[in-house]
Computed example of a mutant assay.
Amino acid sequence: MIRHMDLGSAPYARLRALARLMKNGTVTLAGNRPGKIYGRLDCRTGKRMKPENRVFFQSETDAVTLGYRPCAICLPREYKLWKAS
């Protein structure tokens, strides 16, 4: 798990660091720390969260291991499976 605020001291530095991590495959999913929810990087609800609450994961397994649940908006199939279990 990588915290958004740990990527740099300025917003532009964080954006460049995140783009680099996405390009090399280190980051594939984003999450909301207080809500313990993870989803796709292009999720419309995930884009609205505060940077201090945003975290990033390399895989779904990493997110689930840390106790995060799937987003109902961008991962509806995974959310239904999670809800049924």
Rank of each mutant, 00 (worst) to 15 (best):
Gly35Cys: 02
Phe56Gln: 02
Asn24Trp: 05
Arg69Phe: 06
Ala10Thr: 14
Arg14Cys: 06
Ile73Gly: 00
Arg20Ser: 12
Leu29Ser: 03
Pro76Phe: 13
Leu81Glu: 15
Phe57Ile: 06
Arg16Cys: 06
Ile73Trp: 10
Cys71Val: 05
Pro34Thr: 02
Thr26Phe: 01
Trp82Ile: 09
Ile37Ser: 04
Leu18Lys: 02
Arg16Tyr: 06
Gly39Val: 12
Lys80Trp: 06
Ala63Val: 13
Arg48Cys: 01
Ile73Leu: 12
Glu52Tyr: 11
Asp42Gly: 12
Lys36Ser: 11
Thr26Arg: 09
Pro51Gln: 09
Leu7Thr: 04
Ala72Tyr: 12
Met22Trp: 00
Val64Asp: 09
Asp62Tyr: 01
Asp62Thr: 01
Ile73Gln: 09
Pro34Asn: 07
Leu29Asp: 03
Thr26Gly: 00
Ala13Pro: 00
Glu52Pro: 00
Leu18Asp: 01
Thr28Tyr: 00
Pro51Glu: 11
Gly25Cys: 10
Arg54Glu: 06
Thr45Asp: 12
Ala17Gly: 02
Gly35Met: 14
Thr28His: 11
Gly25Lys: 09
Gly46Asn: 03
Ala19Phe: 00
Tyr79Phe: 15
Ser59Gln: 02
Pro11Asp: 02
Cys43Ala: 10
Thr65Asn: 11
Asn24Lys: 12
Leu15Trp: 06
Asn53Phe: 15
Ala72Asp: 08
Asp62Arg: 07
Phe57His: 03
Asp62His: 04
Leu41Met: 13
Glu78Trp: 04
Gly39Trp: 10
Tyr68Phe: 15
Arg44Leu: 12
Ile73Pro: 00
Trp82Val: 10
Gly31Ser: 10
Met22Asp: 00
Ile73Met: 09
Arg54Gln: 10
Trp82Cys: 08
Thr61Val: 11
Gly39Gln: 09
Tyr12Ile: 09
Pro76Cys: 12
Glu60Ile: 13
Val55Pro: 08
Cys71Leu: 07
Trp82Phe: 15
Leu75Ala: 08
Thr28Met: 07
Ala30His: 11
Asn24His: 09
Tyr12Ser: 13
Ser59Lys: 04
Ala10Glu: 10
Ile73Glu: 09
Ala10Phe: 09
Asn53Asp: 15
Thr61His: 13
Thr65Ile: 07
Val64Phe: 11
Cys43Ile: 08
Ala13Ser: 13
Glu52Met: 09
Met49Leu: 12
Ala72Leu: 11
Glu78Arg: 13
Arg77Met: 12
Gly35Ile: 00
Lys47Cys: 00
Arg54Ser: 11
Val55Cys: 15
Lys80Ile: 06
Pro11Phe: 07
Arg14Val: 03
Gln58Ser: 11
Ile37His: 03
Glu52Arg: 13
Arg40Cys: 08
Gly35Glu: 15
Thr65Met: 11
Val27Asn: 00
